[in-house]
Design a binder for these strands. Structure first.
Length: 398
RNA sequence: GCGUCGGUGGUAGAGUGGUCAAUUACACUUGGCUGUAAACCAAGCGCCCUUGCGGCUACGUAGGUUCGAAUCCUACCCGGCGCACCA
């Protein structure tokens, strides 16, 4: 632990503590314990666990990442736990049973990639990284039985996800009961004061609190971060395809942020940026379009810098407000007809799909003044011309 | 192990011998209206082409019955529930 210990001053600034426990936060359990610990001036040990499954970090994940950083910034001991063991077990939800166990090398590689993305938020010089395989792999069956004896089936079944699955006659695999055990053991081994996680992890984290108590370790509090909605208002999730990724290019990130529902602007500001409450209140008085521009600029700046954000805004205004051709049009080599060119490049998924788009009047050739609607499905791809398909797809023929 | 119910398109969930490329809802795509969006309205939503009341492939997997099967039969795989088991 060497370099992390000592000489770090722990801040007990009331306002900072308050912000820490409220902004982007879903729940703090138990709240009194959290407040007491944070005010004590003691250096707390806090951790957040991730699965090294090759995740593309999206804005939803950044709430926890940023929270971890906030703890570190206050002078606490922040630990990032990589689920190197859990990743080799398979999908805890049982949904994707065929998920292949990851090898050690894959875990390493995935984490490198994760770190590359997370670095945009975390300063790894002030964050410890631990792998839960270090203490989970050595456990034998007897150890596991002993651990399991700390829980009752009733406790496990209380989890509402299980309740729902029982009601719906959906399967619950036995190993799903072991998952909270593993997660809980992490916090017992690390003997932490606090665990962070998405609110979907609340049950697992509380299992850890229980286990830690049962094993006579520190009294841990749990802080769940909010699950943020994606562009369309549903939970941000890869399966809904409504995520904004840290790896998104500035223009994409900007475009996606502009597509966010108006009602989410304030939430995004509060959970995803450091903009002060007063500034947010001020921005929210703007017309929605402008408020959203502010949001987009703020977030793109965080991950790509001011210059890129400015350019992204300009590009967006040009293409969508002024209906000009975006600067980064995809250029395609013509292979004869427009259909073949565009299908071959994967811009349109199939010939049938292209035919439908033609029928719907979605395919247009851009001119300096007007757009010409293309009605002939066999129209050639004319060199030098730019075509627009629907609202968002632009291609230029070389 | 026995019994029983079930496995359908991105999801939920209809359909129980022909009229089923499969009702419907959500999601998605596109057009209209807008502020880019949302909401709303409309169309589309397996693939292929010589675009036709066209061909091909699809309702867990493999066979079978039939002029014809998502629908019936057989085997297998997977799941729920009940019974049994209580080491």
């Amino acid at each position: 632990m060497g370099i992390f210990s000592r000489k770090t001053e722990v801040s007990t600034d009331e306002q900072k503590i308050n912000e820490l426990l409220t902004r982007g936060v879903e729940n703090v359990i138990p709240r009194e314990l959290a407040e007491k610990k944070l005010r004590s001036g003691e250096r707390l040990r806090i951790y957040w666990g991730i699965d090294p499954t090759g995740t593309q970090i999206h804005l939803g994940h950044t709430i926890s990442l940023r929270k971890l950083k906030a703890f570190a910034d206050l002078g606490h001991e922040a630990i990032l736990v990589i689920g190197s063991f859990t990743a080799t077990i398979g999908d805890p939800t049982g949904r994707d049973a065929a998920r292949a166990p990851l090898t050690k090398e894959q875990v390493e590689e995935n984490f490198r990639d994760y770190k590359r993305q997370a670095q945009k938020i975390l300063d790894f010089r002030t964050i410890q990284v631990r792998k839960n395989g270090d203490w989970l792999f050595p456990l034998n069956f007897a150890d596991i039985v002993k651990l399991a004896s700390n829980f009752t089936v009733g406790q496990m079944l209380k989890r509402d996800m299980f309740q729902r699955r029982i009601e719906e006659d959906k399967p619950i695999s036995l190993h799903e009961f072991l998952y909270p055990l593993m997660v809980g053991y992490d916090s017992a081994v690390l003997d932490v004061d606090c665990e962070l996680g998405g609110s979907d992890q609340e049950f697992n984290m509380l299992a850890g609190r229980h286990l830690q108590q049962a094993l006579g370790k520190r009294d841990k509090f749990v802080l769940t971060t909010r699950l943020i909605e994606g562009i369309d208002g549903r939970k941000m999730s890869k399966s809904f395809n409504n995520c904004i990724y840290l790896d998104d290019a500035p223009n994409d990130m900007y475009g996606k942020l502009m597509a966010v529902k108006d009602e989410l602007i304030r939430t995004y500001f509060e959970c995803l940026t450091d903009t002060t409450q007063e500034a947010i209140d001020l921005v929210m008085k703007f017309p929605p379009l402008e408020a959203k521009h502010s949001l987009a600029v703020a977030i793109v700046t965080m991950y790509h810098g001011v210059a890129a954000a400015g350019k992204a805004k300009e590009n967006w205004v040009n293409t969508f407000s002024k209906k000009e051709v975006p600067e980064d049009v995809q250029e395609l080599q013509s292979v004869g007809s427009l259909r073949d060119t565009v299908v071959k490049a994967g811009v349109v998924s199939s010939n049938s799909e292209f035919a439908r788009l033609i029928l719907a009047g979605a395919v247009k050739q851009m001119g300096s003044q007007d757009e010409i609607k293309i009605v002939d499905g066999n129209a050639p791809a004319i060199s030098g011309k730019t075509y627009r398909i629907g609202k968002h797809r632009f291609i230029k023929i070389k």
